[in-house]
Amino acid sequence: MSSILETVELSFSYPGTNTEALHKLNLRIPEGKKTAICGHNGSGKSTLFLQAIGINSPASGQVLWKHAPLSYTSKELKQLRQQVGLVFQDPEQQLILNTPFEDVSYGLRNAGIAEVQIQQRTKEMLQTMRLEHLAHTPIHHLSLGQKKRVALAGVLVLEPELLLLDEPTAYLDRISEQQLVQELERIHKRGVTLVMATHDMNLAYSWADWILIMEKGQCIMEGTPYDIFSDPAAILGLGLDMPMLLDIWHALPAAIRQEKGMLPPRSVEEFKTLTQKIFA
């Protein structure tokens, strides 16, 4: 697989701490894929994202964007942040203006885009994210799910090649989560590489093409969802949960699971289809 972003022996500590947030981290983000990065709080997921857009720079090691080391000059970082977008876990950290229209247009204006294009691209993005009816509503009147979609729109309007999402479904109700995941599917189909940091093993299993497991600032496992969750003892040993669908699947008799080389289902719909075939 071709990688779009890599880290090479990347180490970083926050000021005033003796513990490394990242310790000689080596990982690759495959281009064009949906990657989930899983791990406990403090495993380094958010720190990695801040390194990826140059907010923090390494104590040692490198971050590679399309195989070239990041440059930390103002000009290069400005260009990088149009190619790599980051959506924070808490949209309040990202929404700085009064209305969705103002906030989404801010990044374009900061990038020096002509005003006519700013108006057009902002309107189109709000329509794409189904936010046009809220364009001039005060931000503080929006629900958490709506705020997350505005924050996402503000990043997407810059047309990044890589989108990083830090716990994007945190604190969302089930319907809002499903709507956000549907938006991400549409974004991915447009050719954007997606990376999601998440605690939700069910979401990681059903959504991702590739999964990275981080622990104590290092990447300790990587592979497809089937690869990662093929060893329940290893996952549980890290204090992580197995996806519920896999737990149910493994509870079925082995003779049924192994019939005709069936792969474990990755969605409720797949599970229903498989069980209908099995018990028909």
Results as ranks from 00 to 15, higher is better:
178 Q>W: 07
107 G>E: 05
49 F>T: 00
208 A>N: 08
153 A>F: 09
218 Q>M: 05
51 Q>K: 10
230 S>G: 09
194 L>D: 01
134 L>G: 12
141 H>N: 14
250 H>D: 13
249 W>C: 00
135 A>H: 11
108 L>K: 03
242 M>K: 00
88 F>W: 07
108 L>G: 05
36 A>R: 04
91 P>E: 06
49 F>Y: 13
258 Q>N: 15
175 I>K: 10
142 L>D: 11
119 Q>C: 08
123 K>T: 15
43 S>A: 15
247 D>A: 02
190 R>W: 08
27 L>M: 12
65 W>I: 01
92 E>R: 10
146 Q>W: 03
154 G>A: 05
202 N>D: 15
46 S>E: 04
92 E>K: 06
116 V>I: 12
229 F>H: 00
240 L>Y: 00
273 T>Q: 13
21 A>E: 00
169 T>Y: 02
180 L>I: 12
133 H>N: 14
50 L>N: 07
238 L>T: 03
220 I>W: 01
88 F>T: 01
257 R>T: 09
94 Q>K: 04
245 L>F: 06
223 G>P: 02
31 E>Q: 15
50 L>R: 15
106 Y>Q: 11
165 L>K: 11
128 T>S: 13
199 H>Q: 15
106 Y>G: 03
63 V>K: 03
28 R>K: 14
19 T>S: 08
47 T>E: 07
88 F>C: 03
156 L>Q: 05
132 E>V: 12
107 G>T: 12
39 G>L: 02
151 A>F: 11
209 D>R: 13
197 A>R: 02
16 G>R: 10
263 L>D: 08
96 I>F: 12
97 L>Y: 15
125 M>L: 06
111 A>R: 10
150 V>Y: 00
224 T>L: 02
142 L>T: 07
192 V>A: 08
151 A>Y: 03
162 L>C: 07
228 I>Q: 00
86 L>D: 09
56 N>K: 04
147 K>C: 03
16 G>D: 03
25 L>I: 07
146 Q>P: 08
170 A>C: 08
103 D>H: 14
142 L>Q: 11
37 I>F: 00
